[in-house]
Design a binder for these strands. Structure first.
Lengths: 121, 121
DNA sequence: GAAGTATGACGTAAACATACGACATGGTGT
DNA sequence: ACACCATGTCGTATGTTTACGTCATACTTC
C-alpha cells in the first residue's frame, strides 16, 4: 500500500499493531464502555419475558439511540434478536457472553503488581 | 440551567442519566477499551522492577501517545506513578485496581439470560 | 552554568462515538 | 387496499478519542 506513505497521522489505526488477545479484550470492553449498554444488558437480564423494542421507554434515551446501542451489542454478539411478527425479541446470547466474560476476567486476573517491593511507590 | 432549553442535541450528556453504578462500570470499561492500555497494564504486571517511561519502546506507539494513555490509566486510578529523580516509576495501583475489577466482575456475573425458555430465540 | 536526558503539557488533524429527527420497511388488522 | 404500529436505516450535528510533533520543565552530570 503506497498510500500509507502519505498518511500523516494514522489515527485509530495503531490498534491493529497489538496482539489479537489485546484487541479482543479491548473490543469487549468498548462495548461495555457506555452506561446505556450496561443498562440494556441489565434490563434484558432482569426481564422475565423476551423484551421487545420498548426498552427505550425504560431508558432516558430516544428509541433511535437505543436501537443504535442494541445494534452494537448485537454486532459484538452479546445479544441476539429475532423478529417475532410485529416485534423483535432481544435476548442475551449466553454462549457468546460467557466467552467474552471469560476472556475479560482472565485478562483482569493476570494483572498483578509485581514490582514496588519497597524501593519505590 | 436555562441553557439546557436551547441545547438541541445533548450529545454525550445522557450518560449522567444512568445509575452511578452503571456509570462507574462504563467508566472502568472505557479505560480498558484500547489495546494500548491493556498492553501497558500487562507490561507493568510482567515487569519485575519499576518501569520508567521507556514503555513506549516496548509498544508500537510514540512516547507522546503512550504518555497520554498512561495519564488516562492514572486518572482512573488503575496505576500510580512517582517521580524518582530523572525517571518516573509507574506501577499498578493494586488497591484501586482490585476494586475496579470487583465492580466490573460483579456486574458481569449478574447478567444472565432469564427469558427465551422455548417460545422465542 | 551548560549540555544532555527524561518527562509532561500544548496544539492539531483525523477518525470515531453519541444522540436524535425524519424517512423507509414490513407485518397487523379492518 | 388502507391505516396503523413497531422497528430499522439514513443523515446530521456535536463532542470525544487517538495519535503525533513540538515545546517547556526539571533533574543529572560535566
Amino acid at each position: 500500500m503506497f498510500t500509507s506513505y502519505f498518511i500523516k497521522h494514522m489515527t485509530y489505526t495503531k490498534a491493529t499493531a497489538f496482539s489479537p488477545e489485546q484487541q479482543e479484550v479491548a473490543r469487549i470492553a468498548k462495548v461495555l464502555s457506555h452506561p446505556a449498554r450496561i443498562a440494556i444488558l441489565q434490563h434484558l437480564a432482569e426481564a422475565k419475558t423476551c423484551i421487545s423494542g420498548d426498552i427505550s421507554s425504560a431508558l432516558p434515551l430516544s428509541r433511535t439511540t437505543v436501537s443504535q446501542h442494541l445494534t452494537e451489542l448485537k454486532n459484538a454478539g452479546l445479544i441476539k434478536g429475532e423478529i417475532d411478527g410485529l416485534t423483535v425479541c432481544y435476548c442475551i446470547d449466553q454462549e457468546t457472553y460467557d466467552k467474552a466474560r471469560q476472556l475479560l476476567e482472565g485478562m483482569l486476573a493476570a494483572i498483578k503488581s509485581s514490582c514496588c517491593t519497597d524501593t519505590c511507590c
